[in-house]
Computed example of a mutant assay.
Amino acid sequence: MTEKSSSKPPTWYWVVTVLALLWNLVGVWAYLGSAFMKDQIRADLSPEQAALFDSTPAWVTAAFAIATWGGLLGCIALLLRKKWAKPVLTLSLLAILVQMAHGFFMTNSVELYGQVQGLIIPLFVIIVGIALVFFARLADKKLWLS
């Protein structure tokens, strides 16, 4: 039986991985803010936006937590060149899709927050999540992960 051996990733692998880690740290910061600084966040919202924020179901908050912490953990795994980055980043992407489905299909978030906050940023989050899963798959295929 032949075992795969790891090969050294190129410099751009490290650049992408560090940028992805920073991106996910921003996500964790946003999650922590929404979980622990609700009063400060609500102060900056219109009454309609505050009502939407307050009505967020627990399952959406849980999806947000899984998406952000999973993304951070997956990027740490990429930095450590571990194969478990793939399933962790896939779980993070699934949680992103659950969270964003709520915003897109079960609320009027685009109307309340506008095109940028209600549509463009969430779509960008989804695109980055998809890209990270494909990046982890590529890294594994290229034998950069062990």
Rank of each mutant, 00 (worst) to 15 (best):
I121C: 10
P87Q: 07
W23V: 11
L112T: 01
S5N: 02
N24A: 10
V133N: 11
A50I: 01
P57V: 12
G27K: 04
I121S: 08
V133T: 12
P122T: 14
V110S: 00
V26C: 13
P47K: 00
F64V: 02
Q99I: 00
S5E: 06
Q117F: 15
Y31L: 01
P47A: 07
I120Q: 06
L73Y: 04
L123C: 15
L119I: 06
V88L: 09
S92M: 11
A20G: 05
W59L: 08
L73W: 05
Q117H: 12
V116R: 12
W14Y: 15
K4P: 04
L112G: 02
G129S: 05
S109D: 05
S34D: 01
L143F: 07
W84E: 05
Q49K: 07
V133R: 10
I127P: 00
N24D: 13
Y31E: 00
H102E: 01
Q115I: 03
Q40M: 12
G33N: 04
K83F: 07
S55P: 10
V16C: 08
V125C: 10
I121H: 08
A63M: 03
I127C: 12
T107A: 13
L45R: 01
D54W: 11
A35C: 00
S109P: 00
E48Y: 03
Q115V: 06
R137S: 10
L94D: 02
S6Q: 11
K8P: 05
L72C: 06
